[in-house]
Design a protein around this nucleic acid. Structure first.
Length: 276
DNA sequence: GGTCAAAGCAAGGTTACATCA
DNA sequence: GCTGATGTAACCTTGCTTTGA
């Protein structure tokens, strides 16, 4: 167990580093806890109302219908083994809270609860529970303790279960958002590639027009296109970087042959926009 | 005002179980 | 009936922020 935890810990550290890279996606919730936008104040009220979920997507929660809805709610892990002390404290809090409620009904029978064995039983939320949780999530993606308690009571679940559901729900929402962002970036990349191809082709055609299909272009023209041509930011016309401007191409061809300063060829933009 | 502990949350997972093809 | 894929509830660790003492 300790070995496993160490393994996990080291992986977590790596993940934190990777997270820095993920910031490039630019979605609302990225960047670790520093971007937390919804925090609880001391009196349990939310300071901000879930800014990052203003436009959240609706992941399809394909909830498998339990075979028997009559005894819907399962709460079978109240005695799941908790190893770490802080976690134990937290669980104790929730357990205390849960003790205030009547015994929860369970989809599984009492003997299936495996009290004290450490066996984790899978709970399946009912449609009604899921719907209510979803509705609540739509209103606010985080819960303050009072809301959590109320919701848990309403759903006949433990507060811890409600809390976990919200955590998982937030994670799912974020995952969906990330997938959407990836799609957008992918499409953006494809568009840029197409545009690049188109411009390269256009450039080749311009070269042909300039020097004719049969003539060999001067050696300077064998440099990459970006080194010899650039776009004026003001008029967006393609110009040569040797000072030819937007004028006559035949006149502009001469400096290419002379090339007084090689550095000219690599200057990104040497013409004044005013010249356009 | 600085410090510390507690609580809560996000991130980035893993585990265990349920369900379905 | 078995099996692999998938979905998801529950859990973990770390790091961070907020808040109150």
């Amino acid at each position: 167990m300790c070995e496993k935890q160490r393994h996990r810990a080291s992986k977590t550290i790596n993940m934190v580093h990777e997270d820095g890279l993920s910031l490039g996606l630019g979605y609302g919730g990225g960047g670790g806890a520093t971007t937390t936008e919804s925090k609880l104040s001391s009196d349990g009220h939310q300071k901000q109302q879930d800014l990052q979920f203003k436009h959240y997507y609706e992941p399809s929660l394909t909830l498998g219908r339990p075979p028997d809805d009559s005894n819907s709610v399962v709460s079978s892990f109240s005695n799941v083994v908790n190893t770490s002390a802080p976690q134990a404290v937290k669980r104790e809090r929730d357990d205390v809270a849960s003790e205030e409620r009547p015994a929860v009904s369970s989809r599984v029978s009492d003997e299936d609860e495996d009290v004290g064995t450490g066996v984790r039983k899978k709970l399946r939320l009912t449609k009604e529970q899921s719907a209510l949780l979803e509705d609540s999530f739509k209103e606010h993606s985080t819960l303050n303790p009072k809301q959590k308690q109320a919701l848990a009571k309403q759903l006949n679940l433990r507060p811890r279960q409600v809390e976990v559901w919200f955590q998982n729900r937030r994670a799912r929402t974020k995952l969906k958002q990330t997938e959407m962002d990836c799609e957008i970036l992918k499409r953006c990349c494809e568009n840029l590639t197409d545009e690049n191809r188109r411009l390269q082709k256009e450039l080749q055609e311009l070269k042909k027009i300039k020097y004719g299909p049969s003539s060999t272009p001067p050696i300077y023209m064998q440099f990459p296109a970006a080194a010899t041509l650039s776009v004026c930011p003001s008029c967006e016309r393609m110009i040569s970087s040797t000072g030819g401007g937007s004028g006559d191409n035949t006149k502009a061809a001469a400096p290419f042959l002379i090339a007084p300063k090689p550095t000219h060829l690599y200057g990104s933009f040497t013409n004044s926009p005013a010249a356009c």
